[in-house]
Design a protein around this nucleic acid. Structure first.
Lengths: 342, 342
DNA sequence: CTGAAAGCGCTTACAG
DNA sequence: CTGAAAGCGCTTACAG
């Protein structure tokens, strides 16, 4: 590849002049500029981004590490929409994404640190949903700014930047909706209990029951894998409860809701006539499932876009005008929920 | 951030020694190595990847530019699974992905060239499905190796590397399946007619009809947007055909199939009793739709993984042992197809 | 408006 | 096994 010096020689200027032309520096005479561009074109020259980065200490790149590589993670709307939001926002600002994989939670943190330490990105979006206070502290020891997507770890908020959905409110609305339909025995089907978002939702679930004066029943709480099997398995367990079995299910994602519905159908239980089911995420399948699933729309793309914008603000201005955002979810009512019939 | 020189000073060695330790160079005494690591740890040192890249002319990074940023593109299984395959394969080989967006086809090509010219990636995966021979030629003028995912442009194959699904065969099987069910009036609902994959499928569709001695009917060919509306609109048109209207639909993706089914239901036409529908991609919704949609499973993740492996082989060995691969699809039979009833 | 030079933080061929 | 030096391809403060 041609370098700045090759162009300089051909255009009869010093290499610093070529550099100035390509970095958009104004103090260049039109004549010189044209000569340089002509020479560059002839040689097929384009500035080497790596060399520029080394010199300017800026990569115009934002890092992320993908927490899971299994198929379902890319089929749920959660991750792809997050990705879309990040991509769109960074593209608009002239940034690119550098994305890495990982094998497990430990590795995820290692990879994040590595991207930070190796100066490959000007900032990082951290998607991990099970960060603890210590780990966040470690990340803060690096100079690389980062924004967390999801629930920040409890403990003192050490000035960590984050954007999250209002899971507390969303869960409350969903559960309250079931309560308003007359349901009292409501099952909570959550995912990984170490997942901070899951925890927040469960807490909100409990509080909503409390406020309605409905006693909590530990038998109606199930933690499973974030997919159809997770939902399916919860039903087997709950149906054994006899008269204490639930009349409504609240599921942590739509795939789990699909699993629940499937398991119920298998037991000749009708949805929503006999049992109501409400999901989370508003994934495409929730719309096409039979019955179409009532669910909570979580604005993942918007969250991710916001996180990127915050990060870029920090990178370019040195500071974020606001360090955290909570975005609203909305209840999407479809056909999987109905009034309780006794 | 600490540099190699800070570590050198603290460990009482020359910076080149520190460099050797961190690049895994063997000719370092155990004692020195330990001293260097200790000093590095104390200073929180990690090699600057940018500087290393400038020096070695290797970034251990693979570039891609995402052709579309609209929501549906991230909800279909096509793109997310492609992404998953690339991510998994590159992670395994110690590479990361650098991903950029674009606004339209022209911009897409520009962005690809820019990544190539600026040496930000050691190689690029090109996903564009409407590349022409000239554009490929331009890309080949750069030193950066690339692998095309999808159908290579027709014309002389100028040594371009690609991996594609066997769309010809997949379409043939799907259409032949409908023919075997007794259907003779089969509609082709394709996407963007400039999309090379679409073209290949349409060609195969026609050939299959020809071989079965079924006359082609141009009225039964529709090109629409790659989403529900695309499918939906095709039905409105085809139903006007009266006795020449189709008894079966072949759709270019599952979202279109869903749109077709929805439009048919709206017209009180039963699927599959009255009309059969077959989709493409085996997206999650195809499984959950009502009726569950018969479709063609295309191994996107595998294709993408293969492309990345080829690229890395080229980057590391200087050559690919094989420059193109065609992967098999498979017909997934579900409930949207049935025997033709007259 | 432009040139000459130092520097960004590494790697590596050359010596010893 | 280790050091000294040149080089990767840019940018930018300093002069003029």
């Amino acid at each position: 590849m041609a370098t700045i010096r090759d162009v300089a020689k051909k255009a009869n200027v010093h290499s610093s002049t070529v550099s100035r032309v390509f970095s958009g520096n104004l103090s260049i005479s039109e004549a010189t500029r044209e000569r340089v561009f002509a020479a560059a074109k002839e040689l097929g020259f384009w500035p080497n981004a790596i060399a520029r980065s080394l010199s300017t200490q800026r990569t115009n790149t934002i890092g992320i590490v993908i927490p899971h590589i299994f198929e379902g993670f890319f089929n749920d709307s959660f991750f792809p929409q997050l990705m879309r939001g990040m991509l769109e926002a960074s593209y608009k600002k002239g940034f690119r994404l550098i994305v890495g994989g990982c094998e497990n939670y430990e590795d995820e943190i290692d990879q994040i640190k590595q991207i930070m330490a190796s100066s490959q990105a000007d900032g990082i979006i951290v998607m991990s949903s099970r960060l603890d206070v210590d780990t966040v502290g470690e990340l803060q020891n690096h100079n690389t700014p980062f924004v967390l997507i999801g629930h920040p770890p409890s403990g003192e908020n050490q000035g960590i930047a984050w954007v999250d959905a209002d899971n507390q409110k969303a869960t409350q609305e969903a559960v309250q909706y079931l309560i308003d339909l007359g349901h009292k025995k409501i099952a909570f089907v959550g995912g990984d209990p170490e997942n901070l978002t899951s925890q927040e939702r469960e807490k909100s679930f409990n509080t909503t029951l409390d406020l309605a004066g409905i006693p909590r029943d530990p038998n109606l709480v199930h933690h499973g894998f974030f997919d159809e099997s997770g939902g399916f398995n919860s039903v087997a367990r709950m149906l054994k409860l006899g008269e204490n079995s639930p009349t409504a299910f609240y599921a942590a994602n739509d795939l789990m809701a699909v699993g629940i519905i499937r398991a119920l159908k298998k037991n000749n239980i009708r949805v929503p006539e006999d049992i109501s089911v409400i999901g989370t995420n508003n994934a495409p399948i929730s719309e096409y499932a039979q019955p179409a699933i009532s669910t909570v729309d979580v604005p993942y793309a918007k969250m991710a876009g916001k996180a990127v914008e915050m990060l870029i603000e920090k990178i370019e201005q040195g500071e974020m005008s606001q360090t955290n955002f909570t975005l609203e979810c909305s209840l999407v009512l479809r056909d999987s929920t109905a009034e309780f019939q006794n």
